[in-house]
Computed example of a mutant assay.
Amino acid sequence: MYWPAPGIKKHPEKRWNRPDRVFFGFGACHILAGVYMQGPPLPDFHAEWIVPHSGFGGTHFYVTDGEIAFDFHGYCRRSALLEHVRSGWSRRFPGWAATIATVDFPLLDTAALNARRHLGPEQFWGDPVERARRFLLRIDHPRRADQARASR
């Protein structure tokens, strides 16, 4: 989990100029999940959204087939991802809790994202869709997914 300096979201160029994993790990995970779902490298994946309970931060989007998940870290067991997010936010904010929702809206649609308090693709300083495509192309998806499935 990344905890950027307070206020960085108010500086689009600084936000953009962070390394890919930081960019997609804090503020653009929905873009990465949306691009993944445009042409899924693996079958049977869908997007899920961690929706923190009222008064808490910690929203996060990822894709999953129910067993493994993919986000800015790469592939891992879905249960491990959820535990990682829960433990990170709970350490920082006691009482943190969230609901897991299946994404039922287009993840790259600005109006749908804005209605849920997320930036649309054209609201970033650069082109996050192209950046996500390049990020996804660097991964050997079948091999990494197999490694995640084999982990316990």
Rank of each mutant, 00 (worst) to 15 (best):
F61L: 11
R152Y: 15
P121E: 05
I68Y: 04
P19I: 01
I139E: 12
R133Q: 12
F135E: 07
D104T: 11
P43L: 09
Y75D: 13
I8W: 04
G120L: 12
R15Q: 07
F93Y: 03
A97F: 09
H84C: 13
Y62K: 03
V103G: 06
Q38E: 08
F61H: 07
E122L: 14
G27K: 01
F70H: 06
R18K: 02
F56L: 05
L137V: 08
D20W: 03
Q147E: 15
H11A: 02
A5W: 06
R144T: 13
R18H: 01
D20S: 05
F23L: 00
P94I: 01
E13A: 01
P142H: 08
R92P: 02
P40K: 01
G27A: 05
F105P: 07
S87N: 11
P142V: 10
A33N: 00
P106H: 08
P106F: 05
E48R: 09
A69M: 12
D65P: 12
E67K: 15
V103C: 11
E122P: 12
W49C: 09
G27N: 03
F23G: 00
P4G: 09
R91Q: 06
L82S: 12
M1H: 14
E67F: 15
W96I: 09
L81Q: 08
Q147F: 15
A5Q: 14
F93W: 03
W89P: 02
P6Q: 08
A80K: 13
L119F: 14
F72C: 13
P121C: 08
V51S: 13
P19A: 01
K9S: 09
H73W: 14
L81F: 09
T59A: 14
W89N: 07
F105C: 08
R92G: 08
V35R: 00
D71W: 06
P6G: 10
T64S: 13
E83V: 12
F24P: 02
R134K: 14
A28R: 00
S90D: 03
H84L: 14
L136F: 08
H46I: 06
D140P: 05
A115H: 07
W96D: 03
R149A: 13
F61I: 01
F72V: 07
T99F: 15
L137T: 10
P52I: 04
Q38D: 04
G7W: 03
L113E: 04
G95N: 09
I31N: 01
G74D: 14
D104V: 02
I100A: 15
S54W: 13
D65H: 12
I68D: 03
G88A: 14
E130I: 11
D71P: 09
H11M: 02
D71F: 05
P128K: 06
S54H: 15
D44W: 09
F26I: 07
V103W: 08
N114Q: 04
G34K: 01
S87H: 11
P128Q: 02
S90I: 04
R92I: 11
A111G: 06
L107F: 06
F135G: 04
D65G: 09
H84Q: 15
G7C: 07
R77G: 11
K9C: 03
V63M: 03
N17C: 00
P4S: 12
E130W: 10
F72L: 10
V51D: 14
F61S: 02
F124M: 05
A69Y: 06
